[in-house]
């Protein structure tokens, strides 16, 4: 499993595709976490189930936790859930790449 993260529109999906042309790519993973949350699932358990089902996948997500703490409880919970889920993925992944302006920085 590999993980590509970055702020909105930083080119993480393009880089993930370029570097892993034959891999299964699960993009917009932050939205998948939000949907899981709305279904009442635990974020960590959801991430673990994705790791178990797709151990060779490339996960692509936006970093969403580095802004002003939102006033709405639901929005706060969403940001935190994405963080918790991506911690699970990052621990499972053998490679983590953070993308800024299209440039990948390997942090694991």
């Amino acid at each position: 499993m590999k993980l590509y993260i970055g702020g909105a529109y930083q080119g993480q999906l393009e880089l993930a595709r370029a570097e892993n042309p034959d891999a299964l790519i699960l993009s917009d993973f932050h939205e998948a976490v939000q949907e899981a949350m709305l279904r009442g699932e635990d974020a960590r358990a959801f991430a673990q189930s994705v790791c178990a089902a797709h151990p060779d996948a490339v996960i692509v997500a936006n970093e969403v936790g580095a802004g002003v703490v939102p006033m709405e409880a639901q929005e706060r919970a969403f940001r935190e859930a994405v963080g918790r889920a991506l911690c699970v993925i990052a621990q499972e992944a053998r490679q983590v790449t953070r993308v800024v302006c299209g440039i990948g920085v390997r942090i694991k």
Binding site: E63, A66, R76, E80, A81, G83, R84, C87
Partner: peptide, 10 residues
């Protein structure tokens, strides 16, 4: 040591 990071980052 100063530790920083976003929400829920560990």
């Amino acid at each position: 040591v100063l530790v920083t990071g976003g929400s829920g980052c560990g």
